[in-house]
């Protein structure tokens, strides 16, 4: 069955939401040339990720479809489209702006919640334990330690702490 876009399901304010995030402003400059999609290594593997289509969906106001999707999380950040876009849409960063809206609307992908929790609790993506430091010692490398305090301060300033409250903080 064809997924037909119905006017009544569109939210014309969606693009404004995206444009109010950092790096979202240039989305309206897109003239749909498709250079991004042709350059995209992820799209070459799976057509579910199609930057031109995502941009068009945002401009049309297909808010729920975009924000609830998995595809919005599939940019590998290679910047091929960013470099080649003739309209300076800053697509790699625009994808971040769209994802940032998804997070605000409660649609974060669990992989990113998990990463945010690790960073919030350890200051890094990894929990540094004795095993790691023993290994470092053997390699004659300086010891390292978890540094969560500063990250917790930043998260609480920007409101991201609520996202990771379920953590061991």
């Amino acid at each position: 069955m064809k997924e037909v876009v119905e006017m009544k399901d569109l939210d014309s304010n969606f693009k404004n939401q995206v444009m109010s995030e950092p790096n979202g402003q240039n989305i309206t400059k897109c003239f749909s040339c498709g250079t991004c999609t042709a350059s995209c290594p992820v799209r070459e593997i799976d057509e579910i990720f199609n930057p031109r289509k995502i941009i068009h969906m945002v401009l049309l106001g297909m808010k729920e479809t975009v924000l609830k999707s998995e595809f919005v999380w599939l940019c590998s950040t290679c910047y091929a489209c960013f470099e080649r876009c003739p309209q300076d849409v800053r697509i790699t960063e625009l994808m971040n702006a769209i994802k940032n809206v998804a997070v605000k609307e409660g649609f974060i992908h669990p992989a990113f919640t998990a990463q945010a929790e690790l960073i919030y609790n350890n200051g890094r993506l990894y929990d540094v334990d004795d095993f790691i430091n023993k290994k470092r010692n053997k390699a004659e490398l300086p010891q390292i330690e978890n540094k969560p305090a500063a990250i917790k301060k930043i998260f609480s300033k920007t409101g991201l702490n609520s996202l990771v409250e379920g953590g061991k903080a």
Binding site: N23, W73, E93, N100, V103, F112, Q115, L125, A150
Partner: peptide, 24 residues
């Protein structure tokens, strides 16, 4: 020793938080 994550994984979540992490 006080260096922390650069912010890369957080850009997808909230760009200003990631930027503050880099800036730190």
């Amino acid at each position: 020793p006080d260096f922390t994550c650069c912010g890369f994984p957080i850009k997808s979540v909230n760009q200003d938080t990631a930027l503050a992490m880099s800036a730190r």
